[in-house]
Amino acid sequence: MKITDIVTGLNLKVISGHNGLTNEITGGYVSDLLSDVMGNAKEGQVWITLQTHQNIIAVGSLKDLSAIIIVKGLVPEADTVEKSNIENIPVLSTELDTFNMTGRLFDLLR
């Protein structure tokens, strides 16, 4: 499954990183501690978080994540958007909270 499939399937808004929309998804990871994501997320996973700081893109790039979903309609900082476009890691947005977003992504990937 590709990022474009979850964008359509889960009604996500693409904020940035459009060049990464064809990334293949291997699974998902949920955490708001970037140190934890650095230690435990796996290549190709979609990361669901409420963090919006530019460091999320660096972590996404380091771990080769397929995309980052920001929950609750939170808006990423301008430098996060900029770095997402440079690194080709899509930043997606949902109005849902983490619990509901994760449940739906889990169902879709199952």
């Binding site: 501690l33 650095m38 530019q54 460091n55």
Partner: peptide
């Protein structure tokens, strides 16, 4: 520290 620090929350020092 492993909680409430820049490293725990943001992974590393932001550029």
């Amino acid at each position: 520290r492993t909680k409430n620090s820049i490293y725990s929350q943001l992974g590393f020092l932001p550029v």
